[in-house]
Amino acid sequence: MAGSEISLKNKPEYPSKQGRGFKNIFYSQKIAPYLFVLPFIFSFAIFFAYPVYSTIVMSFQEVLPGQVTFIGFENYKNLWNPTFLKAIWNSTVYTALTLLVLIPFPLLLAVFLNSKLMIAKNLFRSITFIPALTSVVVAGIIFRLIFGSQEGALLNSIVGVFGMEPKAWLNHAGTSMFALVILATWRWMGVNLLYYLAGLQNIPKELYESAEIDGASTIQKFFYITVPLLKPIIIYVFTISIYGGYSMFAESYMLYGSNRSPNDIGLTIVGYLYRNGIEQNNLGLGSAIGITLLLITFVITIIQLKFFGMFKREDS
């Protein structure tokens, strides 16, 4: 922010005569900033604000082709059922588990990859990032085959070596959540690693050098220099991981080949939205689910940012 203000104050010597009105707009301190954010405002209004508004309206309606009626809070009342609670529970467990895995491990890997002692850094960086480039559809199908129930499926033949019975991995709540978390880890490890790496490279080397002179150990350097200075990045990764977790849908859809899993063990909030809104042609209820998801993530984010002291720092 500060940087951009300075450059605006340094007015160029360009003559600001009338008649060059159009060009002048770019140099006007009052108008230019708005002009530059205009594309964002437009796309935000058209693709985000309007859909959110109409979703809120639709969540109070019964939406059928050709006839739309207001039904008050009926859609929200209908949400109070075991299947939706199960979907919230599944999404929450999934989010919690992915946070447990995808916050600390990429951080450690990033520190390793940033270390001078590491060989073939770029190779490892690419390898961890490639999964993020694959399509969820392909990844989901491959994982479905890996976790297949046949004896010949990859995972079953691996556990067979250790004398375990072949399992129907995707038929049980625990093992199917395991598959989902593995899929998420495989896909997102590289992305989070990249955020951390970018952050690590911004930490001045001098800090480490002076710590070394003071006799700090590697572990002390990690906890007293790396982690505190990476805090903003960690908060960012934490925040997007929460949304990523709660909005997960495609992974589960592809893993089961449809939105239906045995006993709904793979049903997520967005999956429930899809089932009701699209598959059962009840867009009103679907909208209510969407708004609920928005509120859940909103509340969690507020709590989380408060917990990390993000508001406090701005105030002081």
Partner: peptide, 29 residues
């Protein structure tokens, strides 16, 4: 200050939730 932050967070949440959904739509294709 607090209010503006709250608003920013809301905007952020909305963006992410929606970009999440739109991704999914493409991929189920």
């Amino acid at each position: 200050m607090k209010k503006r932050n709250l608003f920013l967070v809301l905007v952020f949440v909305v963006c992410i939730v929606f970009s999440g959904c739109s991704n999914n739509k493409g991929s189920s294709n």
